[in-house]
Design a protein around this nucleic acid. Structure first.
Lengths: 213, 213
DNA sequence: TCAAAAAAGTGGTCTGACCACTTTTTAACG
DNA sequence: CGTTAAAAAGTGGTCAGACCACTTTTTTGA
């Protein structure tokens, strides 16, 4: 069995061997990998094959290469999984409505999670938004939403949100209007008090306003 | 600006150009791409550079290569991506948890949307699940969840879900146990009746069961 | 007409070369 | 001796050519 799997894809074996090497040598994030020429010799393959494997891992953000410097194991937060996938998924999916809806799915979930979690909904950062709204009278819409996502602690959801939010462009990355002020305040206040439903309602009102901009 | 972004990563530009080429030539899934030598000439770069880009896309499962045959645009996303990423990324427990949570975010949203939409929650497909459960006593977990996502009509959410569901692998793609039967039935029934809250509650119970498998 | 053989096309791999850049070593100077 | 500048070595980036194995297409010949 597994004839097809094993006889083919030599460069995939190199990827496997690279991983094994990383484990064996206990290479930590940020540390240097052996040079391409050394890897080529140690693995008994040509340098170009090594490079094909390395470039694949680089596209995924699993390693970083510095011209003339070397190849380094990337830290987990730099993995470009979502970025790469979004490059292909979002590009095909022309429906802007879906992008917006999906973005809002993540935002609403964040509101739910924060509203239901004592520690999260009582964070001082929410008060800082209030202060900013009072003093300056306005606030960056994207900043609030991003803070929501960050607070939940779900880094994957945050990464997806970043990609989706990038498509909305300037419509999201702007200062709130006077009309939005009350909705945002209501949303934040409800969230702080743990009123999930009210927070979501205010959010939806806010978003329907944003939509018409 | 963007000095660092542009001066580096020449092979990443090739990846971009390949995408562009696929779009321009309107190459459909399963269809053939130009040969490496032709691409090399058309893009004005060496064949090895083209290969590095192609191998990256292959690792992502976006293209398929047949020795002596050619390079083809992949019909569906293959498991390569899952395997590679699980090797490097999903070793971290936090990441696994995030993947599961994010997947559930999309599933719960689907349940909400369907429960609140007359046309969706009264679809005959839900009854078919009931029948299947009655007759065979079991049902594929993944099938139900996929149907939920498909029904909502948000194709982007569906695509993201597909990717996330792939990580859970066999834990999701299996037949339901006897214990799960009641929860699934409750979830579906509540959904059909428009009882959003009850449906979600049953779903969460179900998922907590799945988690222990 | 059709099957076998030849040719062309294609991916897979390796080697060597050269460039640009970084790091290390060496040499020169004060 | 210490500092600094130059040289060397190390490293990734790219290209060209070669050869192999395999597939597809074309040609050949019975």
């Amino acid at each position: 069995m597994d004839k097809k799997t094993e006889q083919k894809k030599v460069f995939l074996e190199i990827v496997q061997q690279l991983r094994q090497l990383i484990k064996m040598e206990k290479i930590q994030a940020g540390e240097k990998l052996p040079s391409e020429r050394v890897l080529s010799e140690r693995l008994g393959v040509g340098r170009s094959s090594v490079r094909e494997a390395l470039r694949s891992l680089e596209l995924l953000g699993l390693i970083e290469t510095r011209h003339g410097g070397g190849t380094f194991l990337a830290s987990t937060h730099k993995h470009q999984l979502v970025e790469i996938l979004s490059m292909f998924i979002l590009e095909d999916e022309k429906s802007k409505k879906d992008v917006e809806l999906t973005r809002q799915i993540h935002e609403m979930e964040a509101i739910r999670v924060i509203s239901c979690t004592e520690i999260l909904r009582t964070l001082p950062v929410w008060d800082s938004f209030f202060v900013k709204l009072e003093i300056e009278g306005t606030i960056n819409c994207r900043d609030i939403l991003r803070e929501l996502l960050i607070t939940t602690g779900n880094r994957l959801s945050l990464k997806i949100w970043f990609q989706l939010a990038a498509y909305d462009g300037d419509r999201l990355n702007r200062n709130s209007t006077e009309d939005e002020k009350l909705m945002i305040q209501t949303m934040l206040k409800s969230m702080q008090l743990g009123y999930e439903k009210e927070a979501l309602k205010a959010y939806e009102q806010w978003m329907s306003t944003v939509q018409s901009i």
